[in-house]
């Protein structure tokens, strides 16, 4: 697990495996509730100013901001 990086640095349309969500607050909890554990994630789109991402996770779509996404640590699937 040496090549861990935060998902906001990921590429579009590529699958990554979620390893961990960092931090300890309600945003982490919300992400875990939504299923950001033991699964793959893919970035589909970014908004015009590249601050909001549309990701595909566990069979549904989620709009999520760069700041939140930067807390999701992933590795190549």
């Amino acid at each position: 697990m040496d090549n861990l990086f935060s998902l906001d640095k990921g590429q579009k349309n590529k699958s990554y495996k979620i390893i961990k969500v960092t931090g300890d607050d309600k945003i982490k909890r919300r992400l875990l509730d939504l299923g950001f554990v033991n699964c793959n994630i893919k970035i589909l789109k970014t908004s015009a100013l590249r601050q909001v991402f549309l990701v595909e996770i566990r069979g549904f779509l989620l709009a999520i901001k760069r700041t939140e996404l930067s807390r999701v640590l992933v590795c190549n699937a």
């Binding site: 945003i27 939504l34 909001v52 549309l54 779509l61 989620l62 709009a63 999520i64 901001k65 700041t67």
Partner: peptide, 9 residues
């Protein structure tokens, strides 16, 4: 305070 934005489509 926070700028969290998480929204399901």
């Amino acid at each position: 305070d926070t700028n969290a934005f998480i929204l399901e489509f």
